[in-house]
């Protein structure tokens, strides 16, 4: 990996649209060459953060730094940022090659070099044969790849991608994800990637920043995020989860709905709720929580059961599917087993 990536830092950035606060005391540090994903529900301020970094909007308060230098006074075109827009934003009057050449032409590069580097970028996204096509003659996935080539062609130190794969079907999205990751490794740019899709975030990112209502809720690696979500909101947002309310507590144990009494390690505070991943629940013969299957959902490689415990709590569990084995039918009684260390204690 080349050391082309720049460090990025948002310092207490605040952005208001009228009375509405789109970014609230937004702090984010991205290391050189890091692949950082902003993940969050619609309207949580992800695009606003990218727009602030690209210079499309003025931030009200706070500062944004690239390589430790404030860019608040730097006009957009001098920030040297590569950007992939969700809506492609290819220039309709320029063919594929001319689209990809654009950033190089703006940098007053020599004609021959522009051509050579643009073709190289197109080869990276496997579109060299379509260099002479006009954008309206491309499929959605091809457009998206042109947009990626155009953002990468000048080997930017900072690469912003706003749901670049959002408009694509699942298959194409998955193959482009891998391509994208490989390209980023190759060029070494620092990436801020925006997505709605938590699976995509888990696959691609070095770290994930979960956003909600203009604030960052948690920043950590994909694994940590999955295993130790910091809040009920995140536990629900990443993967599927059983979120169980917590009832009465004493020194050594808490009452969790559905599961009964759970021992509490000394010194731990009483959590707000407890999470349990559906794939970490197993069916046992005896000594589990008794429950009744309510619904069986076939989802290809796995089978999901919605079961109800005796106190009326709905529990989701997932089992790998074994061919030839008939799934449980609704109404069947089962016992649910789980390990205490797999419980996620959610503080809020």
């Amino acid at each position: 990996m080349k050391d082309t990536g720049a460090t990025i830092e948002f310092r207490n950035v605040r952005k208001e649209f009228g009375a509405f606060t789109a970014l609230d005391n937004f702090c984010l540090e991205v290391g050189a060459g890091e692949f950082m994903t902003l993940l969050g529900p619609s309207g949580s301020g992800k695009t606003t953060a990218l727009n602030a970094l690209a210079g499309f909007i003025d931030v009200g308060q706070g500062d944004i730094l690239i390589d430790g230098i404030s860019i608040r006074q730097t006009p957009t075109e001098k920030r040297n940022i590569g950007m992939v827009f969700q809506s492609y934003s290819l220039f309709p009057h320029r063919n594929v090659l001319a689209n990809v050449s654009f950033p190089l032409q703006m940098r007053k590069m020599h004609k021959a070099e522009v051509r050579q580097r643009s073709m190289k970028a197109l080869e990276m996204v496997q579109l060299a044969e379509l260099a002479q096509r006009m954008p309206h003659e491309l499929s959605g996935g091809q457009k998206q790849r042109v947009a990626i080539a155009r953002a990468l062609v000048f080997e930017p130190r900072v690469l912003l991608m706003d749901e670049p794969l959002g408009a694509l079907d699942l298959k194409l999205r998955e193959s482009l994800q891998l391509e994208l990751k490989a390209l980023q490794k190759q060029i070494g740019s620092t990436v801020i990637f925006v997505t709605h899709d938590q699976g995509e975030a888990l696959t691609l990112s070095d770290r994930i920043a979960v956003m909600d209502q203009g604030e960052i809720q948690q920043i950590c690696t994909p694994q940590e995020l999955y295993d130790q979500p910091a809040s009920t909101f995140i536990a629900n947002f990443i993967g599927s989860n059983n979120i169980l309310r917590v009832g009465g507590a004493d020194q050594h144990s808490i009452q969790v709905e559905g599961l009964g009494r759970i021992p509490l390690k000394p010194g731990t505070e009483k959590p707000y709720a407890v999470g349990l991943r559906p794939e970490l629940i197993r069916r046992t013969e005896s000594d589990g929580v008794p429950a009744m299957v309510e619904q069986t959902i076939f989802s290809g490689e796995a089978i999901r059961y919605i079961a109800r415990t005796e106190d009326g709590t709905e529990i989701l569990l997932v089992e790998p599917r074994h061919p030839g084995e008939a799934p449980l039918a609704a109404g069947q009684s089962i016992a649910l087993g789980f390990d205490f260390e797999n419980l996620i204690f959610l503080p809020k």
């Binding site: 499309f56 006009p75 075109e77 920030r79 940022i81 827009f85 220039f91 950033p103 703006m106 000048f154």
Partner: peptide, 19 residues
């Protein structure tokens, strides 16, 4: 004309006049 195209041009290094 899609305003996003002008933004795209700007971020790719075009001054307002060149964009």
């Amino acid at each position: 004309i899609d305003g996003g195209l002008i933004k795209a041009a700007r971020v790719m290094g075009a001054s307002p006049i060149r964009a």
